[in-house]
Amino acid sequence: MHLIRGLQDKLARISMLALALFAGLLVFLMAFGLFLRSRPILDSIPLMELLLSSSWHPLKGEFGLFPFLTGTVWVTGVSIVIAVPFSLLCAMYLAEYAPVSIREWVKPLVDLLAGIPSVVYGICGVLIIIPLIKDHLAPLFGSFSTGYSVLAGGVVLAVMVFPIIIHVCLEVFASVPYEVREASLALGATRWQTTKKVVLRKAMPGILAAFVLGLSRAFGETMAVLMVAGNVARVPRSLLDPAYPLPALIANNYGEMMSVPLYDSALLLASLLLLVVVLFFNVLSRLVLIRIERGIQ
């Protein structure tokens, strides 16, 4: 009896350990798998050419990823440019100005925003942002646009990364000791001076980490962008041009035309790139945030 219980305990512990290890290793396994599968294309076309060529003609054996890379960079860039000032001001208001009652009300609402499925954001983008750009914004600049564009993708993504940035910024602001604010106020500084010169400065590493975390989210976001960005495999030249971000390329094409040689290898290379970039940003920002949480400055 005693023996069996001991054995059970041991078994349970070992299997749980194995599962935990597996979960931890999963990301490396995935990266490794993607790497193996993208070997064929890396062996036949130099990496630099894959990254910098603009010609994407799978049937002719040309797999230039440049349009998709620039598409991703454009859309992500626009989203961050929009999201950063909005979410920073919002977090600053909530953390430094709002009475506790308002803050405690708004915080869960903001977090709720993060839980909305991205396809819903996509739909809202198609129904609201696209017509707005097509019928109002583009004519204003005297140009034509279908509405499906870098700008549309950027706006939708911006709304999607707001909650992440706001949430992390709020935590970073909360980690700034109250006494530092008091020190500034006690010298006769106003709230705004205190926020701008002391709190922001103290919180800056964390705020940057929040931006990078938002960036990595925007970088990998697929569904919503796919629905509004236009998906034309050309390097975008302006905000109103369509773009074809990397995740959209993969989602749209994987599983089709697989008989084309090297096609699937090219898409898996694209996935690997995406994974590596997103992981890099993610790990970077989390490391900074962990340091802040532990109070190392």
Binding site: P177, E179, V180, E182, A183, S184, L185, A186, L187, G188, A189, T190, K197, V198, R201, K202, Q297
Partner: peptide
């Protein structure tokens, strides 16, 4: 209030230098 506070220097329980 800012004018009032300027008339008093404060030392707190632990020193909190400004981040500069």
């Amino acid at each position: 209030v800012t004018h009032l506070r300027q008339k008093m220097g404060l030392l707190s329980q632990r020193p909190y230098p400004l981040p500069m």
